[in-house]
Design a protein around this nucleic acid. Structure first.
Lengths: 191, 191
DNA sequence: TTCAAAACCTAGCGATGCTAGCGAGGAGTT
DNA sequence: AACTCCTCGCTAGCATCGCTAGGTTTTGAA
């Protein structure tokens, strides 16, 4: 029955519409400005339609976060692929990471604040998260030495994450960010 | 006129009452459960009294955050003071930091989420923030080498912060936290 | 004792996330 | 082609939120 298929397709399209609209609004004005009423108006449907797709506003935020992880993974992949040797690859990946967080602050915050309770290095982790983690792992692999690779990757990710969030929150002076990154790479490059 | 003094004293006491009650409630049930109505009931005053002390709920959260920074600074100081040599001092400080974040998750999150827009290493920074930063700086000083000390401290702080927030958010497996910490110390201990 | 000025409370506003319940219109059956 | 059913999306409304206006009580001084 192709009718059922068409309906499912249309439903999927509308779900995409919701997530994209939510992300655009959030990135432009923050999540407080993304009310269910505004979001419904934006997609030209009524409010309750949102709840036939998502359990609530939190679930919409989680969907946006997942999109963000997919985009981050792609960004890191591109950065790593375009580098000549291992050390510049690591530097490029780190720079791409902070650039990503800097240019999409709301999206980045959503990715790490929303109630997605899944770990990075786990089998049941969503694919985009695993992909991003894998990119980082390959980037740090040459300098891991005899340390456990996953643990080493986690620490590197945590350092990048700490740098970006503290800088974004105004806790660290933004003008010294490059020096901090250089220091980080210095500590993580030499095996 | 001692009457005026008594009033100011009572006002200060009540403000303390508000902040403490807010913190207790938040640590027990999260900030969403800290409504202005519940908070007012808790301190046995009416709602508008809160607004004669603070501009809004955000300001109350900021006050709680500042208390948290003072407590963190004291914790770090105690950890550093009780260590024999430089390397164990650094390890003790790092352990105390993550323990602090682990045992007071809501407080810690408040400290870094609330809209306090002040940097660590700046003259106009509140004292508790400066004190905490100073403790970290002294802890990492012996291993800073020829790197800029403030930048080095900021990177160390950021790494600790990233580890705690990612672990708390469920992004990193909790059972490997000690190994990550050991790896961090390994990278930051040798000058 | 009177009076002005704080101090504080009751009541209510606008907005939020979310849901109940109804009506229209397409899908399937005879 | 007519009828039934059921999915879909809407209107309307609930409970609760942060916050504020306006009046009432209490307080300290004349």
């Amino acid at each position: 029955m192709p009718i059922q298929e068409r309906r499912e397709r249309e439903r999927a399209e509308r779900e995409r519409l919701i997530v994209d609209a939510a992300r655009e609004l959030a990135e432009a004005e923050g999540w407080d400005a993304v009310t269910t009423r505004r979001l419904a108006e934006r997609i030209e449907y009524s409010q309750p339609v949102l709840y036939s797709h998502f359990k609530g506003k939190d679930a919409i935020m989680a969907a946006v976060a997942l999109d963000g992880f997919a985009e981050l993974a792609a960004t890191l992949r591109a950065a790593r692929a375009g580098a000549a040797d291992a050390n510049t690859a690591l530097a490029e990946v780190a720079a791409a990471y902070t650039r990503f967080a800097e240019t999409r602050p709301v999206l980045y915050e959503t990715m790490f604040t929303s109630a997605v309770d899944l770990t990075f290095a786990s089998p049941e982790t969503p694919a985009p998260l695993r992909a991003g983690f894998a990119e980082l792992r390959e980037a740090v692999r040459p300098s891991a030495g005899d340390a456990d690779l996953d643990t080493y990757t986690e620490l590197f990710w945590a350092s990048l994450h700490g740098l970006t969030t503290l800088t974004r929150g105004g806790r660290l002076p933004r003008e010294a960010q490059e020096r901090r990154l250089a220091l980080l790479l210095d500590r993580f490059s030499r095996g």
